[in-house]
C-alpha cells in the first residue's frame, strides 16, 4: 500500500469521524444530507458483498466494517434518534436521490469488469459513489450558515477522492498490470464534482470568513 492510498483512507475515516462527532456529541445533523448518507450506506453494502468471501488483509476487513457500521449508524441517527432527527433540514434536502440509483444500476449491468452478481454490484457501487455527494452539495448551497463541522466533513471527503487519484497514478507506474478503468473514470468524475466546493472552501479559509456557497 502506498502513502497516497493510506492518506486517502485516513481522510475518508476522518470525514466519517467528524460527522459522527457532530451527530453524537452535538446531537445535531443540521446541514447534513440524509439522502447522501443513504446513498453511501447503499454504496458500501453493494461494494462490500465480498467481505466474508474475499479476504485481502486485516486492515481491509476492519476498514470495510468501519465504513459499513458508520454509514448505517449515521442513517439510523438521522431517521430515528429522538433529538438528532429534529435537527434534520428536511425542507432543503430535496434532491431526488432515488432517481440516480436506477441509472447507476443500468450502467453497472452494461459496463462492468465481468457479468457476475458481485462484479455488477461492485460497478454499481462505484457509479453510485461518484454521484452520492450531489444531494449534500445541493443542500450546502441552500444552507445560509454552513457550520464548520459540515464544511470539514465535505472537505475531508473531497480530499479522500483527490488522494485516491494520486494513488491510482502511483499504482499505474509501479504496478502497470493493476488497472481498474471503471473506478478510475468514475473516481475522476466524482472528484470534479467537488471542485466548485473546494474553490469556495479554500477562499473562505484563506480569508478567515464563514463558508457560504453562491446560490
Amino acid at each position: 500500500m502506498n502513502l497516497f492510498r493510506l492518506a486517502g483512507d485516513m481522510t475518508h475515516l476522518v470525514s466519517v469521524v467528524v460527522l459522527l462527532l457532530k451527530i453524537h456529541t452535538i446531537k445535531s445533523c443540521a446541514g447534513v444530507s440524509l439522502k447522501t448518507q443513504e446513498l453511501y450506506a447503499l454504496v458500501f453494502a453493494a461494494r462490500y458483498l465480498d467481505l466474508f468471501v474475499h479476504f485481502v488483509s486485516l486492515y481491509n476487513t476492519v476498514m470495510k466494517l468501519v465504513f459499513l457500521a458508520s454509514s448505517f449508524s449515521i442513517v439510523w441517527y438521522m431517521r430515528k434518534h429522538k433529538i438528532v432527527r429534529r435537527t434534520y433540514d428536511r425542507e432543503h434536502d430535496t434532491f431526488r436521490h432515488h432517481f440516480i440509483v436506477l441509472p447507476c444500476l443500468v450502467l453497472a449491468l452494461l459496463i462492468n469488469e465481468r457479468f457476475t452478481f458481485r462484479e455488477v454490484m461492485w460497478a454499481f457501487s462505484i457509479y453510485l459513489e461518484a454521484v452520492a455527494i450531489l444531494p449534500q452539495l445541493v443542500l450546502l448551497q441552500r444552507t445560509r450558515n454552513i457550520d464548520n463541522l459540515t464544511g470539514q466533513y465535505v472537505f475531508f471527503l473531497g480530499a479522500y477522492r483527490v488522494l485516491y487519484i494520486l494513488n491510482w497514478i502511483y499504482r499505474y507506474f509501479t504496478e502497470p498490470h493493476f488497472v481498474h478503468w471503471i473506478s478510475w473514470i468514475a473516481g475522476i468524475v466524482q472528484t470534479v464534482l467537488y471542485a466548485d466546493f473546494f474553490y469556495y472552501y479554500i477562499i473562505s479559509w484563506k480569508n478567515n470568513v464563514k463558508l457560504e456557497l453562491p446560490a
Partner: peptide, 10 residues
C-alpha cells in the same frame, strides 16, 4: 485484462 485484478481498495 483488468477483470482478473483483485480489488484491494476500499
Amino acid at each position: 485484462s483488468s477483470g482478473s485484478n483483485p480489488k484491494d481498495e476500499l
